[in-house]
Amino acid sequence: MAAVAWMSVAVALGSLGLAVLAWCAFKVWLGVRRFGRELERTRRRLEPKQSALRDELSRLDEAQSSQRPGEGVRSS
């Protein structure tokens, strides 16, 4: 009879442990969803600045490539 009681306790503790793991997994899943939304919002906010920076870099690259090699500024 005592073995059946220990077996019931073991099954109950195992079930409780799985419930705790499921709760933790659910909290992680919610956090990942929230993080994904935050990343998407940040991406939308940074897109205009990123495209402006990309345009400025291409203008600088074009200006640099139009210079002859000997026309650079020298430092002493």
Results as ranks from 00 to 15, higher is better:
residue 33 R to P: 04
residue 27 K to D: 01
residue 28 V to W: 04
residue 53 L to N: 07
residue 20 V to W: 06
residue 5 A to P: 00
residue 30 L to P: 02
residue 76 S to L: 12
residue 58 S to M: 13
residue 42 T to Y: 04
residue 29 W to F: 09
residue 48 P to S: 07
residue 52 A to L: 09
residue 71 E to N: 01
residue 24 C to N: 02
residue 76 S to T: 08
residue 34 R to S: 05
residue 19 A to W: 00
residue 28 V to G: 01
residue 4 V to H: 11
residue 63 A to D: 11
residue 73 V to A: 07
residue 68 R to L: 08
residue 60 L to I: 05
residue 46 L to R: 07
residue 9 V to D: 15
residue 50 Q to T: 09
residue 40 E to S: 11
residue 43 R to V: 05
residue 18 L to N: 03
residue 42 T to N: 05
residue 49 K to N: 07
residue 33 R to N: 10
residue 25 A to E: 04
residue 75 S to L: 15
residue 36 G to V: 02
residue 3 A to N: 06
residue 32 V to W: 05
residue 56 E to R: 14
residue 25 A to S: 08
residue 64 Q to E: 10
residue 3 A to V: 04
residue 18 L to F: 05
residue 61 D to R: 13
residue 57 L to Q: 13
residue 18 L to Q: 01
residue 7 M to D: 13
residue 38 E to Q: 10
residue 46 L to E: 08
residue 38 E to K: 04
residue 25 A to P: 00
residue 61 D to H: 11
residue 46 L to A: 09
residue 41 R to E: 13
residue 51 S to A: 15
residue 72 G to R: 15
residue 14 G to D: 00
residue 60 L to M: 14
residue 60 L to S: 11
residue 13 L to N: 01
residue 19 A to Y: 02
residue 36 G to E: 11
residue 7 M to I: 10
residue 18 L to C: 05
residue 33 R to K: 15
residue 60 L to Q: 13
residue 7 M to G: 05
residue 12 A to C: 12
residue 38 E to A: 14
residue 69 P to Q: 12
residue 36 G to I: 01
residue 45 R to W: 08
residue 50 Q to P: 00
residue 69 P to V: 10
residue 24 C to A: 08
residue 69 P to I: 10
residue 39 L to A: 12
residue 12 A to F: 14
residue 69 P to C: 07
residue 50 Q to L: 14
residue 18 L to Y: 04
residue 62 E to R: 10
residue 46 L to C: 05
residue 13 L to H: 02
residue 21 L to N: 02
residue 72 G to M: 13
residue 27 K to T: 03
residue 61 D to N: 08
residue 68 R to K: 13
residue 45 R to G: 09
residue 59 R to S: 07
residue 27 K to V: 05
residue 47 E to K: 15
residue 23 W to M: 08
residue 50 Q to C: 06
residue 22 A to I: 01
residue 13 L to E: 03
residue 44 R to G: 08
residue 73 V to R: 07
residue 28 V to A: 05
residue 67 Q to A: 14
residue 54 R to Q: 11
residue 16 L to S: 06
residue 38 E to M: 07
residue 67 Q to H: 14
residue 18 L to V: 02
residue 14 G to S: 05
residue 11 V to T: 06
residue 57 L to V: 12
residue 44 R to E: 12
residue 63 A to W: 12
residue 65 S to D: 12
residue 72 G to A: 14
residue 67 Q to Y: 10
residue 38 E to F: 07
residue 72 G to F: 14
residue 18 L to D: 02
residue 4 V to I: 13
residue 1 M to D: 12
residue 3 A to T: 04
residue 58 S to L: 14
residue 17 G to W: 15
residue 49 K to S: 11
residue 31 G to M: 04
residue 36 G to D: 04
residue 51 S to W: 10
residue 10 A to Q: 05
residue 42 T to W: 02
residue 58 S to D: 13
residue 50 Q to S: 10
residue 21 L to S: 05
residue 9 V to R: 15
residue 62 E to I: 00
residue 76 S to W: 10
residue 46 L to G: 01
residue 75 S to R: 13
residue 34 R to Y: 06
